[in-house]
Amino acid sequence: MILADLSHAVMRQRLCGTGLVLKIGPFAFRIISPIPSLHADLAVLYADYPLLSDDQFVDFTVTIASGTGWHRWFHRQAVFCFDGSDIFVPLPQDHAFPLLEWAMNWCISMHAHQYLLLHSAVIERNGCAVIMPAPPGSGKSTLCAGLVHRGWRLLSDELALISLTDASISPLGRPISLKNQSVDVIRNYVPKAVLSKLVRETSKGSVSLLKVPTEHLRRIDEVARPRWVIFPKYVAQSSAQLTPRSKANSMLELGRNSFNYMVLGHTGFNVLSQVIDACDCYDFEYSQLDDAVAVFDALAKQKVRA
């Protein structure tokens, strides 16, 4: 059963009551929220995700509640509660859906130490994964969104989940967070793209989330092998270009981009070493998505020939 099988009335009733349990990648999330704007976006962007029964094991319970402080008399607020504690500062209530996404990221990055967790997009083709770590504003999510609508499979836009036993990467398959100009870039590049309502004036600017293609969710249990580490950077007017970079430095950069490399200690070092062993490492500059797609496709073809 998937979320789309529920009527809106039943979905609302569950979200306002004991919660809706969704299988998202390898995790089970119980989502509780009385906020209608969150219900609307959840129904669209998570329509194809498996719905679990109420008595199944849940990894994380995420509550996006209405604010109860004096602010509520002037501006309605949304609050992320986890295990009875408020984790982030309250946000305006129309930020509820992006807040849910950030809350889910927080849950995974703070707790899922059965994986080496990198702050990175990951896409896949022919079983081979590209790990794309990059700071905010580098064009990582835009590139990721463009590629997953031109033949690459989305594993994750935000978090690489790397196995501690064999360094394979598990798909997380959550919506891609687009910010500011990227929203229109992707609307133009993927006219059929399904996006959540644009939320303005968040801490990251204007944010809209892009729905994951249904066929990618059908393959959510297929892991991939790390094959490339690519540090992307949008540079206006640049031509799309890959430049080989140092493996040792790439390992250090991935360590800095990790949420739990230090937590995992020697195990983290071993797993990250395996990832770098298996990967060619590059810097990548681009300005046009079509050019970027051509470069990535050529890389995938090289791998097939090899």
Binding site: S246, K247, A248, M251, L252, M262, F269, N270, I276
Partner: peptide
Amino acid sequence: LHWKSWNDEYVVFDETSGQTHQL
């Protein structure tokens, strides 16, 4: 210390401090 190398590039991980160094 735990070592890893690629051609003439080296990293060393110090298990006690948790720090990784490029050498």
